[in-house]
Amino acid sequence: MVRRRGLVINDRQMQLVDDILDKLRQVSGSRFIALVSTSGQPITTSSVEAHPDTLSLASLAASSFAATQQLAEVLHEREFTLLFHEGRESNLHVAQVTDQVLLVITFGRETQVGKVRLYTNRAVEVLRPVFDSNDGDDQTNLMIDDDYSLLADEAIDDLFADME
């Protein structure tokens, strides 16, 4: 079986990422920051208050960013590395960290676009090397084993029991 390339986050990486996101949120004056995969799944967030719908946000932001990349291709541009939406009360900024990871930031009038962009660019430079290592693979082998598959199988039967 050929191993397909997935994204595995271990404890050490998450600790580093959480520290960087918290610091970025403070210095940039932003409200909410999420690290999401390019396939639309949330990895972690930094926020004063929990966002009510991080799953939808991650899915839509990743899709929107992917569409932006395709726009770049249509325009014969090598890549668009960030996406920005301006609203009345809040703004959304999405930046690429690696080919598998995106940074999603929301901020309001209490800060400035330039400040958010500046600190985001710096954060991306620090975040990128965190995802270079692959030392999560050993942990994957330990956790995602036959035992996990068996228990997940039972959980699927329970969740969808009597649904038809």
Binding site: L7, V8, I9, M14, Q41, T44, M143
Partner: peptide, 15 residues
């Protein structure tokens, strides 16, 4: 290729 987050103890599959 699921997203496996050991720190948050989460696995996300895309269908």
């Amino acid at each position: 290729m699921p997203l496996i987050n050991f720190a948050a103890r989460e696995i996300n599959y895309k269908i």
